[in-house]
Design a protein around this nucleic acid. Structure first.
Lengths: 205, 205
DNA sequence: CGACAACCATACATTGACGAATGTAAAAAC
DNA sequence: GTTTTTACATTCGTCAATGTATGGTTGTCG
């Protein structure tokens, strides 16, 4: 095959990743061959093995397009008055996260990671989920501890417990929605749940 | 090979299912061959193909050993005074469910279904999870509606919303614990979360 | 304006899992 | 006691997927 220009080569790389997302989501990671991915992108396996060493490498590249640490969601808001309103910061961060998840690429990749892949090669999706969970839980705990210091939490509720409650609820919602996103809108439903949960946490709930 | 007695044959069938559970949990369903299952049970693939038509059939048989509908958990309690205390009924049902999950067989099979298998053959684990989720959510809604009629819920909280909140929280807890059960005890941690959530729901929280 | 290396297609070798066919020895049935 | 069936073990053909080696253009850089 003839050599492509650098931009064209980068485009076929993205096309391969797009095709992988779509097929992984439908057939699962284990049951999709590199041949199917290549054909769906209008290429052959040669292109795949040029851009990626193997399926695990391709999988990692797919994940790297959608990294979304929790801290980024808060910084993304950029409101400087949030240090005194940690509960509102959590609310806005959830909103920001939900809106991102509605973008097809984010939704698909997270659905694949959580619901459509097993361990394979040197990839351990459960370990990745553990990292994500611990990171978000830690961030939530920080904000709720801050809220507790400011007296914005019920006195009979420890911030650690509230953080775990909220994190479990968010995780459950996340899983449910990723299982089939057509059942409900995660922005609408999620914000209703987050707001009622936070109002139950707050002093004058 | 020599023929075994009926009891011995049933025992090897169970041994094959036990072996499948253990290996599925470690290597994932897709990456374990029937050969590995048979060898781990001290048999060969011939035994597997005698007792099961194929891998999907074996998988279904594995699931059938641990069916646990939500309603059963309530009936299992058998306390007749529960019609007037629906929140307590929910609490006890959660306790009963948590205790069951700590039994290795239940824990392993659910972990496999949720975290260690993709679609394969005519098996769709996500559809099964959907059924489980809708069933438990429906049951929770019934109990919380009952609680609302009895005036045991905060007036500013609809029972439907409370049910979704609780169901999401339980689902998140469920997923987190099944991901690695050594992180915490689901009976202890789960009951703390359920009780605080229910107390936040109740009128004099 | 060459020469090289990038970009991808094609062909080939290897692996390993499945499923079916067949063998067999003992338990059940009569 | 003979026959039949059960409960496996063994073997083998097939096929799909992987990985590698190789070839052929054509951008791109000195």
């Amino acid at each position: 095959m003839a050599r492509k220009t650098k931009a064209e080569a980068a485009a076929t790389r993205e096309a391969l990743l797009d095709a992988a997302e779509e097929i992984f989501l439908v057939k699962g990671v284990a049951r999709t061959s590199l041949e199917q991915i290549a054909r769906h992108a209008g290429m052959t396996r040669g292109a795949v093995y040029w851009h990626f060493r193997n399926k695990a490498d391709l999988f990692r590249a797919m994940l790297n397009r959608v990294r979304m640490p929790f801290q980024e969601l808060v910084e993304e808001i950029g409101d400087p008055g949030l240090a005194e309103a940690p509960l509102e910061a959590v609310r806005l961060a959830c909103l920001s996260g939900f809106e991102r998840l509605e973008r097809p690429r984010y939704r698909r990749v997270h659905a694949i990671l959580i619901h459509h892949c097993e361990v394979f090669g040197d990839i351990d999706p459960l370990a990745m989920q553990n990292e994500m969970a611990e990171e978000s839980c830690g961030a939530l705990r920080d904000y709720l501890q801050c809220a507790a210091r400011l007296g914005q939490l019920r006195e009979d509720l420890s911030p650690e417990l509230a953080a775990k409650l909220l994190q479990s609820m968010l995780g459950g919602l996340f899983h449910d929605w990723l299982r089939n996103h057509e059942q409900f809108s995660i922005v609408e439903q999620g914000m209703v749940l987050v707001e009622t949960q936070l109002s139950l946490f707050s002093r004058q709930g």
